[in-house]
Simulated assay, not measured.
Amino acid sequence: MVVASQKSTSREKILPIELPVVDLSAERSTVTKLIVKACEDYGFFNVVNHGVPRDTIAKMEEAGFNFFAKPMALKKQLPLYGCHSIGFNGDVGDVEYLLLATTPPSIDHFKNISNVPSNFSSTVSAYTEGVRELACEILELMAEGLGVPDAMAFSRLIRAVDSDSVLRFNHYPPILNKDCKDKDESPSYSHTKVGFGDHSDPQILTILRSNDVPGLQISLQDGVWNPVAPDPEAFCVNVGDLLQVMTNGRFVSVTHRVVTNSCKYRMSVAYFGAPPLDAGIVPPSVMVTPQRPSLFKTFTWAEYKKVTYSMRLGERRIDLFRK
């Protein structure tokens, strides 16, 4: 099992890594085993043959790039747009972002904003539906692989009409330096600037899509960062804090960050699958045994979300809820 990094150190090592790749079209029992092993060993994996239409993905990426290409004055008119500041506690990064709730009324709201393209709402809606179904499918495969009798024990939480799931666009500027002989080259890992600092995702599951530009790094042990190469054919999936609790520590929510270590703009679109605010976060009974007693206190997503917003990047929030 991996041990998540607590914080960055001045003696970091950079060791590239290849994440497991799970083909969702493979035989089901094989898929469930691969997903469980990936979540235990890495907390991250890539999925291919995921069923989200290429056209849906392409339109979403085009809409994102078009938005970030707008003048700053227009972007700042949207209350859900942010630049450099991350959270409410002084964290900063070399990033601009757009954060959207995934409920239909929230998405429909963009139809009435003059500086947002008319098809933005429909594009976001189609993409959100696709990645939500993918997240639910993966969560049900996880439950099956863990031997949970109720296959929807995890997915039911993000299928709820009052789910607190969100969609986040992150846009990172390039580093243009002497290593960039042209815009298609990437500099060495030694030339890095943190775009989004050390953190774990607080929700249940993240479905991440990025353009074909590197930047994501995960930390499987303290002081070591493992760059993850982007795969244009795949979605990157990672375990969130809530899923670590709901699997009673079988799966680990791993610390990760993003660096702007390329000569091209990087944009990622992350779907964060979250439960309703009043949902109690507890593992299914089968995950708690005399040999593996319950590791975490019972809490609601609202309680955990409040803690998340009160802490800075790099601080392990989940440790506050250990018994």
Rank of each mutant, 00 (worst) to 15 (best):
residue 304 Y to H: 13
residue 20 P to T: 06
residue 34 L to H: 09
residue 135 A to D: 04
residue 222 D to M: 01
residue 83 C to F: 07
residue 64 G to V: 14
residue 101 A to H: 13
residue 221 Q to W: 01
residue 102 T to D: 03
residue 112 N to H: 14
residue 312 R to I: 05
residue 81 Y to C: 06
residue 290 P to V: 13
residue 303 E to K: 11
residue 197 G to Y: 02
residue 150 D to G: 08
residue 256 H to P: 03
residue 42 Y to G: 07
residue 95 V to S: 11
residue 32 T to W: 06
residue 25 S to F: 06
residue 152 M to T: 12
residue 28 R to K: 12
residue 137 E to N: 14
residue 47 V to M: 07
residue 225 W to K: 02
residue 143 A to G: 10
residue 214 P to A: 00
residue 85 S to W: 13
residue 34 L to Y: 05
residue 63 A to Q: 07
residue 52 V to L: 10
residue 132 R to D: 05
residue 56 T to D: 13
residue 28 R to G: 02
residue 91 D to N: 15
residue 95 V to A: 15
residue 24 L to M: 09
residue 172 Y to E: 04
residue 242 L to I: 03
residue 64 G to S: 15
residue 91 D to R: 10
residue 285 S to N: 15
residue 287 M to E: 15
residue 315 E to V: 11
residue 50 H to Q: 09
residue 259 V to T: 12
residue 79 P to L: 06
residue 186 S to K: 00
residue 74 L to A: 12
residue 144 E to H: 07
residue 82 G to Y: 13
residue 209 R to K: 04
residue 193 K to R: 10
residue 33 K to T: 08
residue 162 D to K: 06
residue 315 E to L: 10
residue 59 K to H: 14
residue 213 V to A: 02
residue 13 K to C: 12
residue 219 S to K: 01
residue 168 R to K: 05
residue 180 C to R: 02
residue 84 H to Y: 12
residue 60 M to C: 13
residue 16 P to Q: 05
residue 195 G to T: 04
residue 28 R to S: 08
residue 159 R to D: 02
residue 161 V to F: 03
residue 291 Q to F: 15
residue 105 P to T: 10
residue 216 L to D: 02
residue 49 N to C: 09
residue 28 R to C: 05
residue 276 P to C: 14
residue 264 K to E: 14
residue 39 C to A: 12
residue 12 E to P: 06
residue 249 G to C: 01
residue 145 G to W: 04
residue 26 A to G: 06
residue 246 M to D: 04
residue 310 S to M: 12
residue 146 L to T: 07
residue 193 K to W: 03
residue 205 L to I: 06
residue 97 Y to Q: 14
residue 138 I to G: 10
residue 278 D to I: 12
residue 18 E to C: 05
residue 174 P to C: 07
residue 150 D to H: 05
residue 276 P to E: 15
residue 140 E to S: 10
residue 275 P to Y: 13
residue 136 C to I: 09
residue 264 K to F: 08
residue 67 F to Q: 13
residue 240 G to V: 02
residue 108 D to N: 15
residue 320 L to V: 03
residue 299 F to Y: 15
residue 128 T to M: 04
residue 317 R to V: 10
residue 251 F to G: 02
residue 129 E to T: 14
